[in-house]
Amino acid sequence: MLIGHRLFRLASVGFLLTFAVIQLVPFYVALTTALKPKSDLSSQWMPPTGRLYLDNFRIAIEQGGILRAIVNSLVVTSVATVLVCLIGALAAYPLARRGTWVNRVVMLLMLGSIMVPPLSVLVPLYSLMNQLGGVNTYWGIILILVTGQLPLSVFLYAAFIRTVPTALEEAARVDGAGTFRVFFRIVLPLLKPVTATVAILTGVFIWNDYQMSVYMLTTQDVRTIAPAIGSFFSQQSSNLGAAAAASLTAMAPILLAYLFLQRHFIKGMLAGAEK
């Protein structure tokens, strides 16, 4: 019994360590690629030899404009994430609380739209954005990404609101509070844990978006990280070293954010499970 238990623990630690190593390999290879010139044909496993080679980082910053792209991504992601949470919470409240058939249909349509493949709406969407003057603007891409993540946000909020007892809201209503007051005073504050979940999930998706951003953002002053890295690849050439350097540079802020917020990451995910 005891031996079995220890073996089990050993196996589980082994599993964890193996997995962690697998997860680190891509980052290691990105690092060795970024630190070697294109003419260095040694194995991806080989660390760079000789003098520290930082040209790829210089190219990523000077020509790829990766620092500007990081700022753009920060702006787009922070605004879009706040909006996804706010609008999603607003929408989820009536949908979770009132099961009329209209609301059921609305909910279904929202859920169904989660899976619309972005490419199949790309051209009409781009045309619309062009007419609105939103191509190559922050607000244009923000509205598109917010809309893209809204259904997921509504889904998560609605699932959570269903688990919240209605007693408080009823009490407030008896006291004469209107809908908006009930929502902002009573409901919204209760949504804090699920808000963390929604923000973390959708924030990462927005930060990493490539498919939409690459078409909507083509100038360096608004372009976000993923399309900026994409600009190192064309039909005629690709610069893996610079792309790797750009990717690593761009990871720094989100990695820092993660390390600071790690505890909230897990707490926030409690969402649906909390009673």
Binding site: A91, P94, V116, T147, P151, T179
Partner: peptide, 16 residues
């Protein structure tokens, strides 16, 4: 209370 989902619906109607 349904008014609360109008912003979301408006966005989805327009961009999806």
């Amino acid at each position: 209370v349904n008014v609360l989902y109008l912003p979301a619906l408006a966005l989805l109607a327009m961009f999806t």
